[in-house]
């Protein structure tokens, strides 16, 4: 029972993280934050501004990757009718 409770708590937290990830992305990419890195300086020859944008990008990808196998299975709220799906019937003109 306790384990179930903890499981559902974790699930809610992971769903919250899924919402926070793009929000953090938006904040990090907003001009007010991103402009802090327009310092006209370079790291090993590459401009810092460019490196910052790619770093945020990679952070977002890694976050989504981490979440991808932790978010719950998507269940379809409406029952499917499998006999009718994926069976394209040729209705080409004859």
């Amino acid at each position: 029972m306790r384990r179930n409770q903890a499981g559902s708590d974790d699930r809610v937290k992971r769903e919250d993280l899924a919402a926070l990830l793009p929000i953090f992305g938006i904040i990090l990419l907003a001009p007010i934050v991103a402009n802090l890195f327009l310092t006209r300086s370079s790291v090993s020859g590459l401009p810092l501004d460019l490196l910052y944008l790619f770093a945020v990008w990679i952070f977002l990808i890694l976050g989504a990757m981490w979440l991808s196998c932790r978010l719950p299975e998507i269940t379809h709220p409406v029952e499917k009718t499998p006999d009718l799906e994926n069976s394209p019937v040729d209705t080409e003109e004859t």
Binding site: A19, P22, G25, I26, L29, L60, I61, A64
Partner: peptide, 11 residues
Amino acid sequence: IGPTLVFVGWW
């Protein structure tokens, strides 16, 4: 980056 934000927030 716009599409990236949409896709990482797919949930």
